[in-house]
Amino acid sequence: MNIPSNIITLIIGIALTLISLWYGQNHGLLPVAASEEAAQVDGIFNFMMTIATGLFLLIEGVLIYSIFKFRKRPGDRTDGPAIEGNVPLEILWTAIPTVIVLVLSIYSFEVYNNMGGLDPMASHDMGHKMAHQSTDLPSSEPVALALNSDNQKIALGLGASPGEQSQEPPLQVNVNAIQYAWIFTYPDTGIVSGELHVPVGQPVQLNISAGDVLHAFWVPQLRIKQDAIPGRDAQLTFTATRDGKYPVICAELCGAYHGGMKTFLYVQTPDEYNQWQQDNTLAQNDDLDKAVAVNSANLSDGEYLAPYAQEMGIDSNALEQLHAQHHLMVSNQ
């Protein structure tokens, strides 16, 4: 290998590094980050983008350079130099990637740990939460018993971050995923909703379960995702830092209308959140009869929906939505 060992190499090297560093920070590929965890994930992505850009430019550069520089000239019928290897060089390009992936592993571990991925305590309360929930939602009853969650030492998903464990207890929300809807239950207030409302700045713990097939809870702006697995409990903990309305997406194929299984996460100021809480607690009590009445009067399969409607006491809008989805599901079977 005749490496052009001179200033040009140096300049190219510096340029490559600078471009990579710049692009790693300014690729602009990610959506807004609405939580601290998200910012950390972005950090690791930017880091990986930096390395990837460098490697990309290096190797594509070598290829493009070779195409022009080492093209066989017309009439030349000779072979290239018989170079069969170069041990120092080979050691170098074994060592560098090794170091890179080690650093990357450690960095990822750090971030993951910060996000609460290794929180072993989380599983303990979970068993009880599950029991509570399965009485809420008849649909999840048969499956919730399948695996004894107390038996699992470690929670699936993300628990409390190491620094946060001593802080205020997180807001609990039980998330049940069914074809093709999300149902959020707030055990503290008894609110059942088709949308997720959380106050900004407060830790939230989602206890995720599935009623029929696999689903996955995903909020891109929070950068967090966890499968909802029938028969197993999982959780996600996060602290939203930026108010707004973000999509909640189902990321695991769950049937024909998997793409339509969407709702929204509202990150609200404490005032807004309290307001919402009050409105809904009221609605829950007052509108219950009405909701069910509407339900059974107009809908042929009201029987099926009744249990949901009762618990959710949802505004007719959400009910409509659920019903539509249910229809899709039925016609689909």
Partner: peptide, 11 residues
């Protein structure tokens, strides 16, 4: 890449 480098490439 090192194989290509310095060779006589027929494209």
């Amino acid at each position: 890449c090192a194989t290509i480098w310095g060779g006589k490439l027929s494209l």
